[in-house]
Structure formats: C-alpha cells, structure tokens
C-alpha cells in the first residue's frame, strides 16, 4: 500500500504544495484525500484482475479534474504510469486502511465523491463483475456511508442490468437489522419507484427497471415464504 501512496504523494502532493504554498491544514488534507481517492480508483479497477482502458480513462479524467491542471502534465502522467504498473504487477493496497484515514480527514460529501469515482470505474467497461461489486460493498462499509444514498448512487452509476451477480439486498438498501415490516415497506417503496420507470422513454432505463422489479419480487417472495414457514 505504502509504495503506491508514496508514488502518488511524491508526484501529486509534491506538485500541489508548490502551487499552494501557505494553505492551511484542511487543504493539505484535501490534496491527500484526492490522491487516496485515485489509489482507491485503481484498486477498484484492479480488483477483478483486469484493468481495462475504459477504467483507466475514467480514473485519469477524475484525477485531471481533481488533482492536476493542464500546464503540469508531466508529473501527472509519470504518476499515472507508475500507478498503473504497480497494479498491473499484481500488487495491492490496504483499502480499509486508506478508508480509515479518509473517514478521519474528510467530510461526508468527499467520501461520496470517492465511492462515485469507484462506481464509475467498475461500470466503465459495461459490466460490473462480482469482485467489483464486492469491492464497492466493502468501500461503503469502510467509508461509513449511508446505505440509502449509496443505493441511489448505484442506480445511477452501476445499474442492475450491468451487474454480473446483483446483490439485491445491497442494491435496495436492505440490511439484517430491519424488521420484517420495515423490509416489506422498503420493498413496496422500491417497487413503486421502479414500476413507475418501466415505461420510461429510454430503453436502458426500461431494462434496468424490469430487472429491479424481478429482484424486488423475489425478495418479497423470500420474505413471505420465511414468514409462512415460521407460522
């Protein structure tokens, strides 16, 4: 983990200090958080053992917008190349440790930006594999985010129809602590929402909505069966 962070820090943070000498601690943290976000983006890309061009491009665009400026591209490209090589070689980083640092230093809004980047990365090649979805689930826990908000972000950035093995509970924002009544109500709300989208003018949304309706009705069916069994 530390090697990649050092690379990123040396190149990106070094550049940042030069440009922003005299900034306070919060800005220093912002720079560091953005670098850590890039590292997580790469980890998201590498977690299925393949780093596609589309995924790298997504990370690069995010990094360009959030870390560098157009007149300082040399160090930026150097950092990108080194980071790509690091992950291509099969190395990995301690994502939970990085997230721990992020949760201490960064406000909630920044943490949502980071998971958004990772969502965009895993969906960039048009399919979100099981390992990538597992990565996002972990990230949501490590970054201490709100399940409902993350579920809504998943709708937008990782639609169910591109998910290789959809985890219905995670997608719908359900968790084990919910009572049966709460689950029913939540499922009803989700059903209402997606049922209203099955006639959307956009075909991809219609497909997403039909898939979501299938998932919701299966969950409801499982809940009903469990209750019947208990009775």
């Amino acid at each position: 983990m530390h090697r990649i962070l050092e690379i990123i820090s040396d190149l990106f943070v070094g550049w940042f200090y030069k440009k922003t000498a005299g900034y306070g601690a919060l800005t220093d943290d912002d720079a560091r958080i953005n670098n850590l976000a890039v590292a997580l983006g790469f980890a998201a890309s590498a977690c299925d053992g393949q780093m596609s061009e589309e995924e790298i491009h997504t990370i690069e665009s995010w990094a360009k917008t959030n870390i560098t400026t157009s007149n300082d591209t040399r160090n930026f490209h150097k950092a990108m190349t080194a980071t790509k090589a690091f992950f291509h070689a099969g190395n990995n980083i301690d994502c939970s440790g990085i997230c721990r640092e992020i949760t201490v230093k960064s406000p909630l809004a920044h943490r949502y930006r980071i998971i958004e980047l990772c969502m965009k990365v895993v969906s960039a090649d048009g399919i979100a594999k099981a390992s990538e979805l597992e990565f996002l689930r972990n990230l949501f826990i490590w970054l201490e985010l709100n399940h409902t908000t993350v579920a809504m972000m998943m709708e937008t950035f990782v639609p169910v129809n591109i998910q290789e093995t959809p985890d219905a509970e995670f997608i719908l924002g359900l968790d084990e602590s919910m009572s049966e009544q709460d689950r029913y109500e939540k499922l009803n709300r989700e059903y209402k929402k997606w049922n209203g989208r099955v006639t959307n003018n956009d075909n991809s949304i219609r497909i997403q909505a039909k898939k979501m309706i299938e998932l919701i009705s299966l969950l409801r069916n499982n809940s009903t069966a469990n209750i019947a069994q208990r009775i």
Binding site: N188, K192, I213, S217, L218, R220, N221, T224
Partner: peptide
C-alpha cells in the same frame, strides 16, 4: 407463480398506502 402474485400484493399495499 408466487413471485408474480407477490407483485400484485405489493401493488395492493402501495394503493392502500
């Protein structure tokens, strides 16, 4: 067909609400 009828049940719940 129970999952399909569950969809109808959900729509009843939604309408009642």
């Amino acid at each position: 067909i129970s999952d399909l009828l569950d969809q109808a049940d959900m729509l009843i719940d939604i309408a009642l609400e």
